[in-house]
Design a binder for these strands. Structure first.
Lengths: 192, 192
DNA sequence: TAAAAAAGAATGAACATTCATTTTTAGTAT
DNA sequence: ATACTAAAAATGAATGTTCATTCTTTTTTA
């Protein structure tokens, strides 16, 4: 009797193809047949790995989000002082968005449309907890403004998404100087 | 011979229905038949007003974007001092996003997905010129940081979109205090 | 060699768009 | 005012295509 061991490479290729096609054509113009073709797989094979199209896109979302937050918090631990901790996280996030453009674009699209179902969205949110904790600590120490975490996020982290999208569209080139400026703006807007 | 004068109300109903359905279901789950039904019109009638589905969504985008910028610059004129001018524009934009939630959500979705074609996107960008001019003037006067307008936009205007989306998803309630905080954060991040 | 994995072709539903008719509109004649 | 008419506007019912998903068969694996 053979073991149940589906090829992980095939699954990865499917995930990759989904990200690429949804980025370039949008969810509405990404048929399963195209995903299969780009992953060098039969359309039927997709259904060995995922229940259906919605399940596919949900799972891709959650996995990319998990990779994103893992990357963001890689060098962070909660005994680091608030200001330094924030800098570490912010710069890792910037790094991710500049290096893993495909993944980051995919997240931006999912976060601004109803293509992901509510449960998966919630699931994705959980991973941000360390940042919320950091801000809580910062507020207690009087280093961070006493604002809702949504405001803090809106003004310090989220602008990176906008910059990445503009960069990706070729509207402007984001260089290292820009990034330092951006970091200063981010910090200025949340520090007390 | 009758005059060519198609009912403007019908067209408006179609635009409104498109915005509503795309917001709630996404472009991929918004068939022409549903748009027609919501607008109390036959599917065939849509084609009297628009060439096809792509043309419909492009035109809706451009019109909403035009309404948005008209609203934003309503009380502004370029002889107003930079700091005050920025405040006026920022607060009008915040107003728009809080009052015209449907329109603002639609723009957010279009600006983060490939559902709009490139030409329409460019068209939409043009309308922001007065704000770019204001920043240019502010930089010359040494009031605004010498940053790329994309950075300025990312840190002062764009966060409002994030806040609106969160508010719309019921994640938190954006009140007048929040808004004043948000305005201060916006200004802090771009003023010299 | 038997079960798992994969494949290609088939199925049926959903959809954008068009077609053939009907209804409305507004100018004109009575 | 009223009736007439021709074009415009609108419609509901096709049409043909695209697509997600399933079915049957083949290939791979252990």
């Amino acid at each position: 009797m053979a073991k149940l061991q589906k090829s992980i490479e095939k699954r990865n290729a499917l995930v990759k193809a989904t990200i690429n096609l949804v980025n370039n054509n949008g969810f509405h113009a990404t048929p399963m047949s195209k995903i299969a073709k780009m992953a060098n797989v039969s359309p039927a094979t997709i259904y060995l790995y995922f229940d259906n199209k919605q399940d596919l896109v949900n799972k891709v979302y959650i996995e990319v989000k998990a990779a994103y937050t893992a990357y963001a918090f890689k060098n962070y631990s909660n005994d680091i002082p608030v200001a330094k901790g924030f800098e570490i996280i912010w710069k890792r996030i910037a790094d991710f968005k500049l290096k893993e453009v495909e993944e980051a674009m995919f997240l931006a699209q999912c976060d601004n449309t109803p293509i992901i179902d509510e449960a998966s969205r919630q699931e994705g949110l959980k991973h941000l907890q360390p940042l919320l904790d950091l801000w809580e600590k910062g507020k207690k120490e009087g280093i961070i403004k006493p604002l809702s975490p949504y405001l803090l996020y809106a003004y310090s982290i989220n602008p990176l998404s906008f910059l990445m999208v503009m960069q990706q569209r070729g509207v402007f080139q984001l260089n290292q100087d820009h990034l330092e400026d951006a970091y200063q703006a981010a910090w200025n807007s949340i520090k007390k």
